[in-house]
């Protein structure tokens, strides 16, 4: 039971358009899984299919062992969903909004009240309990959204672009809440197109593009995989010789070495090997005029990756 969400060859077509293309996704119990991809990559469709709100064209899904297409009520009872745009009934108070959700979940009144109190406490909205939602800021609404999810005490929480539109402070607070939830053992699947925020909380990340999962792994794995050529060391030397280039290629962890021009050599490495590069250059008789390194973040790679893809598509 460690795999709480499993999809097999999940496909969703809207007419000729393939929104999700043979997706195979596994989310383990207790982990925070980040679904990364640009808008329109099929993230929301995937989430809707996991919740049973949209039927897959083909393939299968298991959420906590249930089939969302057959048993959507059971799935939805155990899975909390925070949509990309959280809306509430503005004229109602926070409590009234939450009690409606509690009733929809079939909770008895007393149990509902108890859960609402504890949920509001967790998201730090206790003092706003009886205020109309129209007075809430975006961050407060987002937190109220989380409170609403907590009412049903879910095993899995799915969040669609949870930090979108939040100010940095709000986003930070929100990420803090996600960490708290994770600490409670709740599995979280969140989608985002902003990697740098998600990076901080996700155990594993899936890169999503045009309905396909391009890369999947823990942040470390993904980093290693991508960072295999993520460190670029630029060596400035007045006399670039093939010997020097050969020597640099012998440095362990150097992946690729090439002369950009007569005075600059680019070394792609899987880690920071500036010391080894400098030593090798000098040993090889080269003059070291300058040594710089670009340590590319996952974020950049992600952006770059999708930029490239966009170009290809265009």
């Amino acid at each position: 039971m460690s795999e709480v969400i499993v999809t097999k060859d999940l496909t969703k077509k809207y007419g000729d358009f393939v929104a999700v293309d043979h997706l195979n996704l596994i989310v383990h119990k207790g982990e925070v899984f980040g679904l990364l991809g640009p808008n329109g990559a099929g993230k929301t469709t995937t989430i809707l299919m996991i919740l049973g709100l949209t039927e897959p064209t083909s393939g299968s899904i298991r959420v906590l062992g249930f089939d969302p297409t057959r048993q959507p009520l059971t799935v939805k009872a155990h899975v909390g969903y925070l949509p990309d745009q959280v809306g509430f009934y503005d004229e109602l108070t926070a409590y009234e909004n939450l009690i409606y959700i509690a009733k929809l979940n079939g909770l008895p009144r007393e149990e509902a009240d108890r859960r609402i109190e504890s949920a509001l406490q967790k998201v730090n909205l206790v003092e706003m309990r009886d205020k109309a939602v129209s007075t809430f800021s975006r961050g407060m609404r987002q937190r109220l959204g989380v409170a609403e999810i907590l009412i049903k005490q879910p095993q899995i929480i799915i969040m669609d672009e949870p930090t979108q539109g939040l100010d940095p402070e709000g986003a930070r607070e929100f990420l803090e809440i996600i960490r708290t939830l994770r600490a409670e053992g709740i599995t979280i699947l969140l989608s985002s197109h902003l990697l740098h925020q998600v990076q901080a909380v996700c155990d594993r990340v899936g890169l999503f593009h045009r309905g396909k999962m391009m890369l999947v792994g823990t942040v470390d794995e993904l980093g290693r995989k991508v960072l295999g050529k993520a460190f670029r060391i630029y060596v400035e030397t007045p006399n670039t010789t093939p010997e020097i280039i050969e020597a640099l290629k012998q440095v362990p962890e150097a992946v690729n070495v090439r002369a950009l021009n007569t005075t600059t050599i680019e070394v792609e490495a899987t880690s920071d090997i500036r010391h080894e590069v400098a030593k090798t250059l000098i040993t090889a008789g080269g003059q070291l005029r300058g040594l710089s390194m670009e340590a590319q973040s996952l974020d950049e790679i992600y952006a770059q990756y999708f930029q490239e893809v966009e170009h290809v598509r265009a």
């Binding site: 709100l53 969903y81 925070l82 949509p83 929809l104 049903k152």
Partner: peptide, 10 residues
Amino acid sequence: KTLSRILAQP
């Protein structure tokens, strides 16, 4: 924007 939130309930 309440529809998807409501429909995510059981």
